Amino acid sequence: MYQILYPAVATGALILFTSLMLGRFFSKSWDPKGKHCYVTGGSSGLGLATAKLLVSKGAHVSIVSRDAQRLENAMKELETVRTSPSQILRSYSYDLVTATGAREALDAVCEPYEGKNPDAIFMLAGSCHPRFFIEETEETMIHQMNQTYWVQAWTALEASKRMVRDKSKGKIIFHSAYIGYITLVGYAAYGPGRMALRALADTLRQEFLLYDIDVHIAFPGTMYTPGYDIENATKPKITLKIEETDPGVTGDQYAKGLLRGVQKGDFHISPDLLGNIFRASMRGVAPSGNFVVDSLWNFIGWVGLPIWRMTVDSTVKGHKKEHEEYLTSKGFLYNNGYLA
């Protein structure tokens, strides 16, 4: 992917640099210092990295996760980066894949603040278990939708009701992925939830203009977190091959880009090369962060993405024989090389 896009990127580098510098004079700035930030999935990975970053900037932070032991370890890490003894740092163990769980978690999180809703809600809980579609079951399909969509949608619903009821301004930050823009073999159960989050965020961005509630949604690519190892345990070989040229980042690195986008007031947040190309090429009617910069990203996508798609399609077709051998080893019935 990168080899295809390098020439176009090089020709637009000067325009991009100039536009970014100019954008600094007009960008918004949100300061988390003194704000109450609620981070779901805050016990590990991107959630923990974001929680630590917020604490280091003076925020009061509440983290929620299902794993009590991980939460205990996470709290120790948060304590090491606090900037003031007056910062309130708390953890809570809840399962957020149901409306009841999301409501109970927010009840607990708001209680130390006299019931007041958090100023910013970073919804970073979730997991990915890629497989070929024909390997999915009713259980795994439901699980992936719970972990990609409902684990955020229920929290957003409960939090927004409280914000509107109390007439309090705030921020709701969704967490999607590259797959929220594009599709790849292996993500048939994972991708729909990530794309559904984009549809939800796009809708709420407009609807919440009625209430002065800011909506953001992030689209990260590969992140080297504990969840990445779990993801790769079920990821098809062809998916790994397609993704092998894409550089990954750590949770700490992406957390900085995520928070920077929130502070600037960006709606779709994609703080890396490929993410920006996908965002600018496929954002539909979502607002542009910088018209000149996004026009450049869009041009690069217009040139490079069709070539990338053809390359990926060719790679998938070339995997057919190995895929047939894999399905045979898994016990699928065959008749002359075709599914019976």
Rank of each mutant, 00 (worst) to 15 (best):
T137P: 11
M145R: 08
A159Y: 02
P130T: 08
E136L: 08
W150H: 11
A153L: 06
W150P: 09
E135G: 01
I134L: 14
M141K: 12
P130D: 06
N146A: 07
M141W: 13
S127K: 09
H143E: 13
E136C: 07
E138L: 10
T137M: 10
R131A: 08
F132K: 01
E158K: 15
S160W: 02
E158G: 04
V151P: 00
E136Q: 11
Y149I: 01
F132H: 15
R162L: 15
T148V: 02
T155W: 03
H129P: 00
H143A: 14
R131Y: 10
W154M: 06
I142S: 14
H129A: 12
F133W: 09
H143N: 14
I134M: 12
R131K: 15
E139Q: 14
K161Y: 08
E136W: 05
E135L: 00
A159G: 05
R162P: 08
A153T: 03
K161F: 05
W150A: 05
M145V: 03
Y149K: 04
A159N: 03
H129L: 11
M145N: 14
F132E: 10
W154S: 04
W154R: 01
T140D: 06
S127D: 11
Q152T: 09
Q144P: 02
R162V: 15
T148S: 10
T137D: 13
S160K: 06
A153F: 04
W150I: 05
M141R: 13
R162K: 15
W154Y: 13
H143W: 11
Q144V: 04
Q147V: 00
H143V: 01
W154T: 01
V151A: 02
H129Y: 07
T155R: 05
K161S: 12
A153I: 01
N146C: 07
I142F: 13
S160F: 02
A153K: 00
F132Q: 09
S160D: 09
T155F: 05
A156Q: 03
Q152L: 05
A159Q: 04
E158W: 05
N146F: 03
C128G: 05
Q147I: 01
L157C: 06
Q147S: 07
A153V: 04
I134W: 01
I142Y: 09
R131M: 12
R131E: 09
W154L: 04
R131N: 11
I134A: 07
Q152F: 01
H129C: 08
I134P: 04
S160G: 11
E139N: 11
Q147R: 02
E138K: 14
T137S: 14
L157K: 13
I142V: 14
T137A: 12
A159V: 13
P130V: 07
A156W: 00
I134E: 12
C128P: 00
N146G: 06
E138H: 14
H143M: 11
W150T: 10
I134H: 07
V151C: 02
T140W: 09
N146H: 15
F132T: 07
